[in-house]
Design a protein around this nucleic acid. Structure first.
Lengths: 229, 229
DNA sequence: AATTATAAGTGTGTATTTTACATTTCCAAA
DNA sequence: TTTGGAAATGTAAAATACACACTTATAATT
C-alpha cells in the first residue's frame, strides 16, 4: 500500500459563520444578502473560502471582518458540512463557525453597508444551501454551552440588569425561568458584581446594574459549571 | 463584490479516525503503522483522503474499512484540524472522526494483517503530526459523552457484568467509582436487563450477566441523561 | 465433609441541590 | 397623596447525590 498525495482529490473549503447577538429581548443572528451567483439575492450566513495560507480560525476571522467589519471576534468551530450537492454550483465543503457578540458594540452603519442584517432566531428568513441546518446545529451547541459554562459576557453590554441576563438565558434555552431561582443560581456562581447604579428606564423603582467579574467569570468558563434549567 | 469559485484555493482534506475499544480492563485506541512517507514506520491514526464523490462520513467509513476491515461502524465527527504545517509534506487539513467499538467483535488477524494494533490509552506511542492532539480531544469528547448519554452498547460484549460496565465508566472518566452508588445510578436509568445466567470466570460466587435493553438505551441516548460522577 | 478464600451483592441515613411559590418595596407619575 | 408597576427578596419541601461496611455464594483446598 503506497500513498501518493498527488493522486488525491482537492476540494473547495468554505467557512460559514453563525454570528449570535442579543438585543435585550431576542437572540439574533447576523445574515447577509448574497450578491453573487448562485442564489444571488437570497439570505445566507456570512461565508467565504479558505485560502491555502491560513488556518480555519484565521479564515473565519478574515471572512467575518471583510463582510461586517467585526474584528478579533472569538469564534468556535462547529461542524463540517459535506453533503455532495450542498452547493449546486460546485462541490464544496463548509466548516461552520459560531460566535457570540454584543450587538451594540458593533457599528450599525457598517453592517448595513455590507447589506448584513440582524434577525431574531424565529423570524429569520430561509437560507441558502444547508445554512438553516447550520444555524440549527449552532443553536443546540449554544444551548449546551449555556448550561455548562457561564454565558453573557460576549452578548450583553458592560452593565446590565438581572432581568436582562435572565432574558438572555431564557432566549437561549427557549424556556421561561423563575426569577427568584434564577437569581439564586446566578449568585451561587459568584461571577457578578452588583453596582450602586440603577437602570431607571425599565421601571419606576429602577433596577440595579451588574457587571461580570471577569476573572471569576473566566475561571468558571474554564472549569465549567452546571446551570440546571 | 463578486465571487468566482474558480479563483479559490483547493485543499487536500484528510480524514483521521480515532477508534476506541474496550477489553474489560482498559480503554484502548487502534493505531496503524504507517507504511508510506512522510513519517513512514511511525504510528498514526487510521486515515486517508476525502474523495470528490463522497461525504466526510462516507470517507471515514471507507478509510476505516480499507485499513482494518471494520464495516459499518458508526462514527462521529470531532473537529477539523487545520494548522498550516501539520503535515510537513503538503498543506492538508484533517477532519477527525471517532468511534466506539467492541474489540471482540472484530477479527484480530485482520487487524494484524493491516499492521494495526490496539494500545491502552496511557501506553500509546507518540503519533505523527497532530494525531496526539486529536486523540486528546477525542478523549475529552468521549468523557463528556459518557456523562450526558448512556455508553457501553458499542464497547461491551452482548452480555456483560456490572463490574465490566463500571470498569468501562471508570476508564473513560479516569476516576474510581463506588460500586453501590454506581449500581444505583445505572439501575435508575432503567436500561439494563438482568439475566439468570452468571459469569463464573471472575469469582467463585459468579456474577450475574446483564444486557442492554436496546430500546430504552436508545431512548436515553436520544434524550440525554445526567450521569454525575 | 469441612474449611477457606474471594469477589459479588446489597441498603440507609445524611448532606446537598433543586424546586415551587407570594409578598413587600421603591419610586415616578398622576 | 395616591397609584401603578416592575424590582427585590426567603423558605420549606422534595429530589438527588453521597458516604459507607457487612453478608453471601461458590469453587478450591484440605
Amino acid at each position: 500500500m503506497l500513498n501518493n498525495y498527488n493522486a488525491e482529490d482537492k476540494v473547495l473549503l468554505a467557512v460559514d459563520c453563525i454570528i449570535f447577538g442579543f438585543d435585550q429581548e431576542d437572540l439574533k443572528i447576523l445574515l447577509i444578502k448574497r450578491d453573487f451567483e448562485p442564489e444571488k439575492g437570497k439570505w445566507s450566513l456570512i461565508g467565504g473560502f479558505l485560502k491555502m495560507t491560513e488556518t480555519l480560525d484565521d479564515a473565519a476571522n478574515r471572512i467575518l471582518y471583510h463582510l461586517t467589519g467585526f474584528d478579533k471576534i472569538y469564534m468556535e468551530q462547529l461542524y463540517n458540512f459535506s453533503k455532495i450537492d450542498r452547493d449546486p454550483a460546485e462541490r464544496t465543503l463548509s466548516v461552520a463557525y459560531y460566535a457570540l457578540i454584543n450587538i451594540e458594540d458593533h457599528d450599525e452603519k457598517l453592517i448595513e453597508q455590507y447589506s448584513a442584517k440582524w434577525f431574531s432566531i424565529d423570524e429569520a428568513p430561509s437560507l441558502i444551501f444547508d445554512h438553516n441546518q447550520m444555524v440549527q446545529k449552532a443553536i443546540l451547541r449554544l444551548r449546551r454551552r449555556a448550561i455548562s459554562k457561564p454565558i453573557g459576557f460576549e452578548l450583553l453590554p458592560e452593565k446590565f440588569t438581572m432581568r436582562q441576563l435572565q432574558k438572555l438565558y431564557e432566549s437561549i434555552l427557549d424556556e421561561e425561568l423563575d426569577k427568584r431561582n434564577f437569581i439564586n443560581k446566578i449568585n451561587a456562581l459568584d461571577i457578578l458584581v452588583k453596582l450602586e447604579e440603577k437602570d431607571m428606564t425599565s421601571s419606576r423603582k429602577g433596577s440595579y446594574l451588574y457587571q461580570f467579574d471577569k476573572e471569576k467569570y473566566d475561571r468558571n468558563v474554564e472549569d465549567g459549571i452546571t446551570f440546571k434549567i
